[in-house]
Design a protein around this nucleic acid. Structure first.
Lengths: 106, 106
DNA sequence: TTGCTGAATGCGTATAAACGCATATAGATT
DNA sequence: AATCTATATGCGTTTATACGCATTCAGCAA
């Protein structure tokens, strides 16, 4: 069993905190389809440009996405594919729980 | 590619939010060693009893832990082992990033 | 230079949530 | 019943953060 220091727990919590927001999950989900400019994300998601930019900044602050500049525009892409493993595990567990509850009621 | 509704994203975010707190991670880490009473958690972790109880309540609210009552005391245990898969992925990715940064600096 | 477009940042506000402290509840013991 | 112990809950305060709006900055074009 690994000993967990306060600092380690705080770092892990920070990672999860970044995934604990629907808007950021939405952004990551869009980026899963491939690199994308800020403007494209704005129009796909329908949120404000400053809002999207701020979320991208925080995602980049923990190296979850990377930024590429081309002329006037900024293109973002996934830097940490493990994110989707995490999401898959959560989604699958939610589906399983749902199935269990359905069985209990039947 | 799965279509993600707002509701689905919110549910997934809720799960991650529950893991986005060092104290709750600490509690889960202690419970990984096996079922444990509230008082035992309090003395192991060194937080206040109401604080621990509240975190246990929120963990239970999303079926991450389960509660068993025996006489005067309440025993909690892990209900969703997938939690530790999530933590492992995050920890490993952090270790990898650390290694990469170390290599860049060498 | 000026102006235009795309993206980032600053600031104020509102909402959520983590904690402390006090209190309430449930079970056991006398 | 009275009381003690273990746990849960209510409430107020503080801190974090998500958003809107305004502004600024960077690159390109005239």
């Amino acid at each position: 069993m690994t000993v967990m220091t306060e600092e380690m727990l705080e770092l892990v919590a920070q990672r999860f905190r970044l995934l604990a927001d629907p808007m950021r999950l939405r952004i990551l989900h869009e980026l899963q389809q491939g690199e994308c400019s800020v403007g494209e994300l704005v129009s796909r998601i329908g949120a404000s440009q400053p809002n999207i930019s701020k979320h991208l900044a925080s995602l980049r602050g923990q190296d979850m996405v990377k930024r590429r500049q081309e002329g006037n525009m900024a293109y973002f892409s996934i830097a940490a594919p493990y994110i989707f493993s995490l999401c898959d595990i959560v989604c699958n567990s939610m589906r399983e729980e749902f199935e269990e509850k359905k069985n209990i009621l039947s």
